[in-house]
Amino acid sequence: MHEYSIASEIVSNVLDAVEKNSAKKVLSVRLEIGELALLNVEQVVHWVQALFKGTMAEGAEVKVKTIKAIVQCQSCGYKGRNIPDSRDIDQHYAAFICPKCGSPEVKIEKGRECMLRKIQAVR
């Protein structure tokens, strides 16, 4: 539900960066969103595009790269993927339990990101 505030943050960062680089138009922006971030990617893209309207980024393509989750177990040392492939309701719940030893002491190394990585623009 906080996709709108994240989108506003993205848009202000994009416009700020293009102004600093004296760009005339933005062609595309690239985001990286972790699969464990509490964000609906489609909604983020929708809001970014909506907020781009009337700016020099209007019509820019919004590309999103999904960052896969990597966890590290603090009990047994397992490091790797921990997301069941099926998209059932337990998906996130299972992410917090070590697949090897069942310990909840897992640290999420990757998969919670929400980053603005690249802007392609025209000068």
Binding site: N13, N21, M115, L116, R117, A121, V122
Partner: peptide, 9 residues
């Protein structure tokens, strides 16, 4: 041109 960023939102 590309503007590379590492902006954690």
């Amino acid at each position: 041109f590309d503007i590379e960023l590492e902006k954690d939102l």
